[in-house]
Design a protein around this nucleic acid. Sequence first.
DNA 1: CCAGATTAGGTGACATGTCATGTAAGTGAG
DNA 2: CTCACTTACATGACATGTCACCTAATCTGG
Lengths: 165, 165
Amino acid sequence: MSVLSPEQEATWFAYMRVALRLDFELGRDLQAQAGLSHSDFHVLNALSDSPGQQLAVGDLASRIGWERSRLSHHLRRMEGRGLVTRQTSEVDARSTDVVLSAEGKRALQQAAPGHAELVKRLFFDGLDPALLQPLHDSLEQIHEQIIANGTLPPPPGHQTTWADT
Amino acid sequence: MSVLSPEQEATWFAYMRVALRLDFELGRDLQAQAGLSHSDFHVLNALSDSPGQQLAVGDLASRIGWERSRLSHHLRRMEGRGLVTRQTSEVDARSTDVVLSAEGKRALQQAAPGHAELVKRLFFDGLDPALLQPLHDSLEQIHEQIIANGTLPPPPGHQTTWADT
DNA sequence: CCAGATTAGGTGACATGTCATGTAAGTGAG
DNA sequence: CTCACTTACATGACATGTCACCTAATCTGG
């Protein structure tokens, strides 16, 4: 017997096909339309909806599901391009706060509408509206599962179902 | 008014969170357990369920949603490690056939069970069984949409809904 | 206050991915 | 047949990501 049921396997393959192509299409579009890589966009986006438009490096990493060292390299480059700023935290001198710069904000605002438009076109326009809610619920359940069973720390502010003892 | 409805936006964010973490967790596990990158795995997997365990470079690329040049570089490395073989096609001398080698097959078979196990644990074990079918349908619809509206060529053997004229 | 453990990040070497461009085989209009 | 065009890949330069390891700040129990 195999590990996954036939239905699960079919679903998994469908997921992978979607994920691979979507990642490619979105990255390509962002690069062409806004001069941002998909990675840049994730970072800017996460900062942008954080209080004070800033986040500690570690929190940012778990927010977007990256390793710290990857983020560290990427932030150096983004800082060089003026998209973000780094400053040592005032409460804990080990920690670094990443702040969205004015230019970073501008770049994000310039990129976001077109990006959302493409997401709508590729992801939602072909989806039966009746499936939106089930899809959302599925993804949330899977997300919880990944956080509970994965190796990355949970995102900042995440609540587990069972109260911590 | 924004481009996406609030429900769509929530669903999209849930999707991105799942995609980012899943990609990370699966890649990490494959590397640790089987010494294969997630990229290697996609290539081997695609070859393995193709007739003759081989595929033209271009077909392989659209099968896994990659650019050709990325695949070309990756194949050179995989060939160097003995996982695949490349040979000029006999029917069209421009085209290159990529063939799964015995060693590649072995590597894939060694990696697959653990990989499937992790997929089950991270993706399906937390999912309400009643949502499996809707999730599958959603992903298939989205997949069709991406193929129809994206820039990558459709995968080999893909049928569009409306008969070609 | 001090030694060792822990936590937050940064870094260097090297693997991988992207973009622009190159080469060669097939195609086809005249 | 031949010049222009298209198709299938490969490659080189450079951007990005990974892994192992480093430093410094903080915490903990004497």
